[in-house]
């Protein structure tokens, strides 16, 4: 039966040079970050962690893009929803849970920053802050440094569509354009900047249109299609490595959850909007594709889900019981010691 079905469906991932193992691992990562996210909301509502920033709905965009990069030489300047990006670069469920519980062992910040403020030198992820879009010029600087050092690295910087209004987006993109630097500007357009919809943020049709002003290509892609996102990001990375400069990618996404655990999106979203968008759930879509091409079956799916659940259970238990930083640690790491 499998044979007759697979023959009718185009195998997109092979065309992109991705093996069956790779796409399965992409699927597993998507599911992992979704389930971590779901778990953190439960922990928040149970009063165990103070704050959650969600990636739900954006997993395909994040994981598709990150798989197109080289985690052994490229650098990330992610934004606060990018659990899917950082997990591909090596961060684990345990790391993310340690961050959610603000534990001493949290590799992002040792419990100093809110969750979603990713960073880790060993993962090649530059530490980020809360004022949005400040990471854009940093990515340009990392790319410039790589060039000065004769490296063929690419830097990947992501941000929301609201953030693309910030001066730092413009200043950074323009700088990269002028100096033809190997940067991928990756906008995860989830249609809302907290409560303010796209129509009140931006007057152009697509964030990708903005690239015209910087002299490099701008591409808009369906952010719920992990393979399409992989494809355009891989092209951007190849261009960058060939010395042809930056690319702006807009991944059209949707945010399933409120902005944060402190937000109530019922006050500004039309009723039924989320339910409608969930019909395009990127994980369901990819699951469906993988089954159609015969890479995933019920047994394998169960196996992955079991692994993911176990991973998150263990991570949660570990992080919950992990020690907080010592109070006096507040005074450390202001200057070099």
């Amino acid at each position: 039966m499998g044979d007759s079905r697979t023959s009718q469906v185009e195998n997109k991932h092979k065309k992109l040079g991705l093996s069956d193992e790779q796409v399965l691992s992409m699927y597993q990562d998507m599911l992992l970050v979704r389930k971590i996210d779901e778990r953190t909301w439960i922990l928040n509502r149970a009063g165990k962690i103070p704050f959650v920033l969600s990636c739900q709905g954006q997993e395909a965009a994040q994981i598709g893009a990150a798989y197109a990069l080289d985690k052994n030489k490229d650098y990330l300047c992610p934004y606060y929803r990018d659990a899917g990006v950082v997990i591909v670069f090596g961060m684990t469920a345990k790391d993310l849970m340690l961050s959610s519980f603000a534990r001493a062992e949290d590799p992002n910040s040792g419990g100093r920053q809110m969750p979603g403020h990713f960073g880790g030198k060993k993962y090649r992820i530059l530490s980020g802050s809360s004022p949005v879009t400040t990471q854009v010029p940093h990515a340009v600087g990392l790319a410039l440094a790589g060039r000065l050092e004769g490296k063929d690295l690419v830097t990947f910087v992501s941000f929301g569509e609201g953030s693309s209004n910030q001066g730092d987006f413009h200043e950074g993109a323009n700088f990269a354009g002028v100096h033809k630097l190997p940067v991928i500007f990756f906008c995860e357009n989830n249609k809302y900047a907290i409560s303010v919809p796209y129509s009140k943020q931006v007057a152009c049709n697509s964030i990708a249109d903005r690239a015209l002003g910087y002299g490099f290509p701008g591409i808009s892609v369906d952010g719920s299609d992990v393979l399409e996102v992989y494809k355009v990001t891989k092209e951007a990375a190849d261009r960058a490595r060939r010395g042809e400069g930056a690319t702006l990618i807009e991944a059209r996404c949707f945010r399933y959850m409120p902005h944060s655990s402190d937000d109530d999106d019922r006050t500004y979203r039309p009723e039924g909007e989320v339910a409608e968008e969930k019909k395009q759930d990127p994980i369901h879509q990819f699951n469906h594709y993988l089954k159609e091409v015969g890479v995933l079956n019920e047994e394998k799916e169960k196996e992955i889900l079991e692994w993911v659940t176990k991973e998150i259970d263990e991570a949660t238990e570990y992080a919950e019981n992990a020690p907080s930083p010592a109070p006096e640690d507040t005074l450390k790491h202001i200057y070099a010691e």
Partner: peptide
């Protein structure tokens, strides 16, 4: 650089984080 002070500082921060001395 282009005439944009936030980029001058921000790009320098990225390069410094990499390990250069801007």
């Amino acid at each position: 650089t282009p005439l944009a002070e936030s980029a001058i500082a921000g790009v320098a921060i990225g390069a410094a984080a990499y390990g250069l001395r801007p």
